[in-house]
């Protein structure tokens, strides 16, 4: 029998697919773009949720990986559109406008960054970890601002969206489907990861570190691997997000982005598989409903968030299905 949460998850996945298809039938292109944005931001949140939800690692620097993914796309595509190789010595590296290659490079680059940042920050814990991940994110932000080769503070624009073999990525619904399929694949991966021996050990390290050490596992290694996987997924989301906007700028690396990715996870419910999807959808909806109603919509977002933290713990999914999944 399906649990209530699984039923809800299936309904959520179906809704995310149905809305843009309906919008297509009604010729509402803007809604397709919004749904694509939701899928991509949810993907970034799913990445963070592996570190935050399963591992209990409160990273306030995930914008770093989101931005690295974005810049991977920006740099490769910029060189492809100008026909200038990225480097010629010692060997030739050229830009590309093929999405699969861009994704691979975004994943590898953000995983490497997560390895370095994780190896340094995971030496500490608690509030130090929060501040250090925040600081490393900010370091990359300032680096991107002063890196004039790719637009510095103004960012880097790409004229044409990158290509995917066999699809027309400029067609909004086809690009949405690319993002949607990736999101679904990563969700399946994330669900399997959480139930794998690795995921269980990671969750155990969050709950009782000593017990994990007693059975001969090293929490540091578990957390580092989780942090790298988490960063890589968020990096992939960054590459897609940059492709959606055909633009990458230091804003993707700013700590507001880190905060927002975390907000997606929390609104939906920490550690809930579909939490980031709910959170990203609610965030985008609020942005468009409140944003149309007041220029200062973030005040209401702030108030809502504050009330949620103070009075509605467990996020929206927790509120709907109750606490049938034991987490802490």
């Amino acid at each position: 029998m399906l649990t209530r949460e699984t039923t809800l998850n299936i309904a959520l996945a179906a809704t995310l697919l149905a809305v843009p298809l309906l919008a297509l039938a009604m010729d509402e292109i803007f809604i397709i773009t919004l749904a694509t944005k939701v899928a991509i931001l949810a993907l970034a949140g799913v990445g963070l949720n592996i570190a935050l939800g399963i591992g209990g690692l409160v990273s306030l620097g995930h914008a770093a990986f989101f931005g690295i993914g974005g810049y991977a796309m920006g740099i490769l595509a910029a060189h492809a559109q100008n026909y200038e190789p990225i480097m010629e010595v010692p060997f030739l590296i050229e830009g590309t406008n093929q999405m699969p290659i861009i994704w691979l490079i975004a994943i590898v680059a953000s995983a490497l960054a997560a390895l370095v940042i994780g190896a340094l920050s995971l030496r500490t814990s608690g509030v130090y970890f929060i501040m250090i991940t925040l600081a490393f994110g900010q370091m990359l932000y300032y680096f991107a601002i002063s890196w004039s080769a790719y637009g510095g503070e103004d960012g880097q624009s790409i004229w044409v969206r990158n290509e995917f073999p066999g699809l027309n990525t400029l067609d909004p619904i086809q690009f949405f489907l690319i993002a949607y399929v990736i999101l679904c694949l990563v969700l399946v991966f994330s669900a399997r990861l959480a139930r794998s021996p690795f995921g269980l050990a990671l969750a155990a390290a969050r709950q009782t570190e000593e017990r994990v050490m007693t059975v001969g596992l090293t929490p540091f290694h578990l957390r580092l691997v989780a942090f790298v996987i988490s960063g890589a997924i968020t990096g992939l989301a960054g590459a897609l997000y940059a492709d959606l906007n055909r633009f990458v700028s230091p804003t993707m690396l700013s700590w507001h982005t880190s905060g927002e990715i975390m907000v997606f996870v929390i609104i939906g419910g920490v550690g809930r598989l579909f939490g980031p999807l709910v959170g990203a959808a609610v965030f985008i909806l609020l942005e468009h409903i409140l944003g149309g109603f007041s220029e200062y919509w973030q005040i209401f977002l702030g108030l809502l968030l504050l009330l949620m933290v103070l009075f509605a713990r467990g996020g929206l999914i927790g509120a709907i299905v109750g606490r049938e999944v034991a987490h802490d």
Binding site: I130, V263, I266, V270, G302, L303, V309
Partner: peptide, 13 residues
Amino acid sequence: HLDQVLATFALIL
């Protein structure tokens, strides 16, 4: 700390 981060992030907004 997670709740503290979120609530104070909300205060910033």
